[in-house]
Computed example of a mutant assay.
Amino acid sequence: MTITDKEKILAFLDQMYPDVKGELEYTKDYELLIAVVLSAQSTDAAVNNVTREIFKKYSTFDSLLTVKEVEFAAYFKKLGLYRNKAKHVYNLLRILKEDYNGSVPSAKEELLKLPGVGVKTANVVRAELFKIPEIAVDTHVSRIAKRLGFAKFSDDVTTIETKLRKALPTERYIKTHHQMIHFGRYFCKAQSPQCKKCPLVDICKEPKKKL
């Protein structure tokens, strides 16, 4: 990728999404953690539909601790992998209570010890809650990074994250992460990208452009 191409991409993202933020709804740190765990193989909209009901009914950390695993499963049934997610949420709440006094830790190594928390989830939590410069590579970020030439189509998520960290200024990590998600979710979609309207089409490496 040339410096000119990168500057064009970042300028376009800034123009299109100047003040973009994450779309998961939460008011407390543990609510965000739960929402991100639930977002695996589920859309943010679907997660919000589920968590609105739960977080309203169980508005405190201690009240959430009273929910049984089978009850979580019933709430999560509309989400993918809902049984695993119910188990993860049930167990991580207890670990947060016992080991962290009900708070979400900021250290990545501590987050990765929690059930259902992988690198992507840890990066989202660190960036969103603690404003620590992180790049979480989800399906949208992965697709956009490959199409725009930040990464190869054969790269795995770890390699993509490494390449994005090298390509982007540290102070842009969080903002560009959100911009790439929105660009991938609403414009440069997996199956129906708006290539004809895209000013980055000349940079795009996608072999099957919709022109």
Results as ranks from 00 to 15, higher is better:
F12I: 00
L64A: 04
V119E: 14
L33Q: 08
Q15M: 12
Q15Y: 14
K57T: 15
G22L: 10
E31I: 00
A46H: 14
F12W: 12
E25Y: 03
G22C: 10
K175Y: 13
F153V: 07
K208S: 15
N84G: 14
L65E: 07
I9C: 00
A86F: 01
T43A: 09
S106H: 14
P193K: 00
G184N: 04
T170H: 00
E128A: 14
L93F: 11
L96I: 00
D5S: 11
Q41N: 11
N101D: 14
K120E: 13
T4F: 06
K21E: 15
I9L: 01
F55Y: 14
L92K: 06
A122I: 07
I132G: 11
H178K: 10
A86I: 02
K209M: 13
H88Q: 05
L10H: 01
V70D: 12
T27M: 07
A190I: 11
K28T: 10
N48G: 08
Q41S: 10
C188V: 11
K146R: 15
P133L: 09
Q15D: 14
Y75N: 02
G118Y: 09
V104G: 12
F12M: 04
A145W: 07
N49E: 15
N84K: 13
L38P: 03
A127R: 03
E23D: 14
A107S: 15
M1G: 09
I144Q: 09
A127N: 08
L33H: 07
D29C: 03
L211H: 12
K208V: 13
P193L: 01
G184K: 03
E31K: 00
D14V: 05
T170W: 00
R165C: 09
P207D: 06
C188E: 10
V89R: 01
T51H: 09
D138F: 00
D62V: 04
T66G: 02
A167P: 01
D155P: 10
I144C: 05
L93N: 03
V104K: 11
T2M: 05
F183A: 04
L164W: 01
T139Y: 07
H182C: 11
T159P: 01
P207G: 05
K205W: 09
P115A: 01
L168I: 06
R83M: 06
E171G: 01
P133C: 08
I174N: 13
K131E: 15
D99M: 01
A122F: 11
N49S: 11
T43G: 04
M180P: 05
P199L: 05
I174H: 13
E69Q: 14
D99V: 03
